[in-house]
């Protein structure tokens, strides 16, 4: 288990239900992106996801597509995304998980990318177009560098594939909330609780729910059944018309703070009801 796994295990042991904000590197501007990361810190988060913009993000909905495109036009690159991650680690003491599509990783080379992640202090990597079946090579490179490869499971993932994920995943398990792209799902569809329970029966890792989680009510619902919530598109929507660092910081802190509060309250309720704060 890498540093990411240590942190998510500690958070679970504390009974915390973290909100994990997602920002696209370089969006809405370089300065405002750093402001957003400061806002993440202000809101009390310890974990953040930073998206490496890619030209053809097939798993993303309109909001993250537009954010990626804008960041690319403004000159964001994989190397500069890694520098931003290093800054968030160094200046803000955030634990950073990078989200990036496979091709830029392959272009840099798996081993070189893993080494660059380690140098930048990146704790984990999420690759939405790399299913667990194809991930052995990159996973080995990342593990050798002390970086976790976060596995995504979906509502369509069956029992046999859950076993495959359970055998290989580290850090946390990313539960895609609905069949769909980022930012467009209901966030917590009718079957969320049953879905989370089904995954939990197969895997002991903390379960973080993402794709379409964007309101306090949705976050609270996630907190009542899962271990954390990842919030991307909804946050980027708050940032799209902001250019300066202080405004991005304030907007992020306020929005993420609200979600974190809702999750903490819901998590407390879960603990009171069940008499324990740890699922393990």
């Amino acid at each position: 288990m890498g540093r990411l796994g240590d942190l998510t295990a500690a958070l679970r042991a504390e009974g915390a239900r973290p909100v994990v904000p997602f920002v696209t590197a370089g969006f809405p501007t370089d300065d405002a992106c750093r402001g957003a990361l400061r806002g993440v810190k202000d809101a009390g988060c310890r974990l953040v996801e930073i998206g490496v913009p890619f030209s053809d993000p097939v798993a993303d909905g309109p909001v993250i597509q537009a954010a990626s495109q804008r960041a690319l036009v403004q000159g964001m690159t994989p190397a500069r995304s890694l520098e931003l991650a290093a800054w968030a680690r160094r200046e803000l003491d955030l634990t950073v998980v990078l989200m990036g599509y496979l091709n830029p990783v392959l272009r840099m080379g798996s081993e070189r990318f893993a080494a660059a992640c380690a140098t930048a202090g990146v704790a984990g990597l999420i690759v939405p177009d790399l299913p667990v079946d194809e991930a052995a090579g990159l996973r080995a490179s990342l593990h050798a560098a002390g970086v976790d490869l976060v596995s995504l499971v979906a509502p369509t993932t069956d029992a046999a594939r859950l076993q495959l994920h359970a055998a290989h995943a580290s850090g946390f398990l990313y539960l895609v909330s609905t069949t769909g792209v980022t930012g467009t799902g209901a966030g917590a569809g009718d079957g969320l609780e049953a879905y989370v329970a089904r995954v939990r029966a197969a895997c002991t890792l903390p379960l973080y729910v993402g794709f379409g989680v964007g309101t306090a009510a949705q976050a609270a619902r996630v907190a009542r059944c899962a271990d954390g919530a990842i919030v991307g598109s909804a946050l980027l929507r708050k940032l799209e018309h902001i250019a300066d660092e202080p405004a991005a910081r304030a907007a992020t802190s306020s929005f993420i703070g609200e979600l974190a509060g809702a999750m903490a309250a819901a998590g407390d309720g879960t603990r009171d009801a069940s008499g324990k704060g740890d699922h393990s």
């Binding site: 097939v58 079946d133 995504l152 369509t156 895609v176």
Partner: peptide, 12 residues
């Protein structure tokens, strides 16, 4: 070749 798609599509 290979199958580089989101997990959602793998069972399909």
């Amino acid at each position: 070749g290979g199958q580089y798609v989101p997990e959602t599509l793998m069972p399909c």
